[in-house]
């Protein structure tokens, strides 16, 4: 039995999502979590484009949706970088364990 291309693309997107989810939960710092979130977003874009290209659905809409996802990912990465800089100045670490307190880590 040969699997159809659309199923294959969807399985690839699912693989991206699963790997990203493992990383998102098992990473201990904000940087590692950011890397995993980027992978989740990539999986979403891939599945949208595959669904738009290989079905009778409108092709341009799928591509535009993925372009919007890319723009949002860029904005999100910028903000997370700035937040990491602030958190690092305040807590001297970006480990999520240390951020679970309201007060500073040192006090």
């Amino acid at each position: 039995m040969i699997i159809s291309p659309l199923t294959l693309f969807m399985l690839a997107a699912l693989a991206l999502m699963v790997i990203g989810l493992v990383g998102l939960i098992s990473r201990r710092t904000l940087v590692g979590m950011l890397i995993s979130v980027e992978m989740l977003l990539n999986g979403a874009g891939l599945s949208v484009v595959a669904a738009a290209k290989l079905t009778p659905a409108s092709d341009a809409v799928g591509q535009l949706a993925t372009l919007f996802i890319m723009g949002l990912a860029a904005a999100e990465a910028t903000l997370v970088l700035a937040m990491m800089v602030v958190v690092y100045r305040r807590f001297d670490t970006v480990a999520t364990e240390a951020l679970a307190t309201i007060k500073d880590a040192q006090s």
Binding site: R27, L30, E38, M84, V85, V94
Partner: peptide, 26 residues
């Protein structure tokens, strides 16, 4: 252009700015 060119560079800056390479929390 966006992911390989921009976002990965941002992530590299994040890694370097928070001094979290091979000896850090991860």
């Amino acid at each position: 252009l966006i992911y390989v060119g921009a976002i990965s560079i941002l992530i590299l800056f994040a890694i370097l700015l928070v001094k979290n390479t091979s000896s850090g929390e991860e």
